[in-house]
Amino acid sequence: MALEADLRAALEALARTPHLLVALDFDGTLAPLVERAEDARPLPASGAALRALAGLPDTTTALISGRALDSLRAVANPPEVTMMIGSHGAETWTGPDGDPLALTPAQMDLRARAIEVVERIVAAHPGTRIEFKPAGVVLHTRTADDDVARSAVAAARTELAQLDGLSVTDGKRVLETSVVKADKGEGLAVLRGASGATAVLFAGDDVTDEHAQRTLEPGDIGIRIGPGETAAAFTVATPEAFTEVLEELVSLRTSGARG
């Protein structure tokens, strides 16, 4: 599939920037969505394109995900130099010298109470699952029937609303909770500053990615994967279609499109 002319023209301009940051969501962007989060893997061609970009001069690659960093490393197997934002911005890895996430005693207690709530919800709703994160807990409903999923999310939202200081966010068949208030927009700002980027390509498929889309500046490119309301300037239909975008960027950046 040939890229649309306006997207290709934007990529040509982006490829000429002095220092490029390519910051990407993982699930639904580099990897197709799957029922079991641990089974996700990047599309081979997208993974190869990410590795190629990571090896180019004056080019920084990064992953920005709702996953915890350990989970993201396990499924994405990113290039060693790739920076990472996990847990929707609560966790940051910009190199081996960075400090790991550390919760206060109050945050640890709040996380424990949120876990108790989600554990009760999962026990009462067949097909739902719980995921533990360093800063919170996630209710997964992708493997539950639709009516069960709706009931589980409604019940969880009601109980979690009683916990002061907890951030609750909807995603695709997930309900995310965190004791650290952060989002992907804040994470992208950290990556932009750490890399010294003069322009950014950001791509994502979910409502949580819109926080990052709305922070993009003139000269950046935002891409939405799949349907949905978005602040991104461009949309491609599937992760497979996004592979072509990455491959085109590799070609342009490699061929000396930079001025």
Rank of each mutant, 00 (worst) to 15 (best):
E12T: 10
G219T: 01
E176R: 14
V200S: 01
T238M: 11
T59L: 04
P78L: 10
E186K: 09
T82Q: 06
G196K: 12
E186H: 08
T29V: 05
A152H: 03
T254H: 14
A197K: 09
R224W: 01
G185L: 12
G28E: 06
I115C: 14
P105M: 09
R16H: 06
A5P: 08
T17M: 08
R73S: 06
G256A: 08
I221C: 09
P134I: 02
A54I: 09
E229C: 01
V148P: 03
G95K: 12
L43V: 02
G86N: 02
R67E: 06
G204C: 07
L50I: 13
D6F: 05
D164Y: 11
A199W: 00
L33Q: 04
P79A: 03
G89L: 04
A203L: 11
T29N: 02
E116H: 12
L21D: 01
A149F: 04
D164V: 09
D205G: 03
R258K: 14
L69D: 00
V200K: 02
A237L: 14
R214S: 11
D170F: 14
V190N: 04
A54Y: 00
E176N: 14
D209R: 04
H211F: 14
R67D: 03
G89D: 08
V190P: 07
V190G: 00
D147A: 11
V179P: 11
G165K: 10
W93D: 13
L175V: 09
P57F: 07
G222E: 11
H19V: 09
Q162V: 03
E186R: 12
T94Q: 13
R129Y: 07
G256N: 08
R120M: 13
A233N: 08
E176S: 09
L63I: 05
A161W: 15
D170K: 13
A144G: 05
L252H: 01
M108P: 11
I85M: 04
A123S: 15
S151A: 15
A182I: 07
T61A: 00
L201C: 03
D146K: 14
L72S: 01
S65H: 02
E210M: 07
